[in-house]
C-alpha cells in the first residue's frame, strides 16, 4: 500500500492506539467477571494495530513492534495446551482449572485463576492470527 501523508490521522492514531490498547487489556482482565475476555481483548488489540497499519504503513508497524506474529500464535497455543495439560500433573482430568484468592500488594484481594492463563493463550493466538493474516496480505504485492 502506498504511504499517504495524512497528518491528522497519524496524530490521532498515535494517541488513540494507546487508548484502544489499554481498553483491550482491561477487557482481557475483566473477562472473567464482566463482559470481555481473551477473544475480545485479542481482537481489540489487533484492531489497534490495524489502525496503526492503516494510518502509517507496514514498515512503521514493524519498527514499532518487531514481532513475528507466527511465533506469537505458537506461543499462545503452547500456553493454552500447557495450562490444560498442567492439570494432569495434579492427577485430575485434563482441563481442570484451579483458582484461589490472594492478597496482593497494590491490587488488594484478587483471585488468581488458571483459566486466566488459558485465556492469555487465547488472547495471544487471536492477536497472532489476525496480525499474521493482515500482515501477509499487506505484504503480498
Amino acid at each position: 500500500m502506498k504511504h499517504t501523508n495524512d497528518v491528522i490521522l497519524e496524530t490521532v492514531t498515535s494517541v488513540i492506539t494507546f487508548i484502544i490498547f489499554l481498553f483491550a487489556v482491561h477487557l482481557f482482565f475483566a473477562g472473567h467477571y464482566t463482559p470481555g475476555g481473551g477473544f475480545v481483548g485479542g481482537l481489540m488489540t489487533s484492531a489497534a494495530l490495524v489502525l496503526v497499519l492503516l494510518a502509517f504503513d507496514l514498515k512503521t508497524l514493524r519498527t514499532i513492534l518487531p514481532f513475528d506474529y507466527k511465533w506469537i500464535t505458537t506461543l499462545g497455543l503452547l500456553i493454552s495446551v500447557l495450562t490444560a495439560s498442567g492439570a494432569l500433573l495434579f492427577n485430575v482430568p485434563f482441563f481442570t482449572h484451579a483458582y484461589d484468592y490472594f492478597d496482593l500488594p497494590l491490587f488488594g484481594k484478587t483471585s488468581l485463576h488458571t483459566a486466566m492463563l488459558f485465556d492469555l493463550g487465547v488472547y495471544l493466538v487471536v492477536v497472532g492470527v489476525t496480525m499474521t493474516i493482515i500482515q501477509t496480505i499487506g505484504e503480498s504485492d
Binding site: 472473567h32 467477571y33 464482566t34 470481555g36 475476555g37 483458582y99 485463576h113
Partner: peptide
Amino acid sequence: AGGGNMVN
C-alpha cells in the same frame, strides 16, 4: 469456576 461472566 470462580467467575462471573458465564459466557467467558
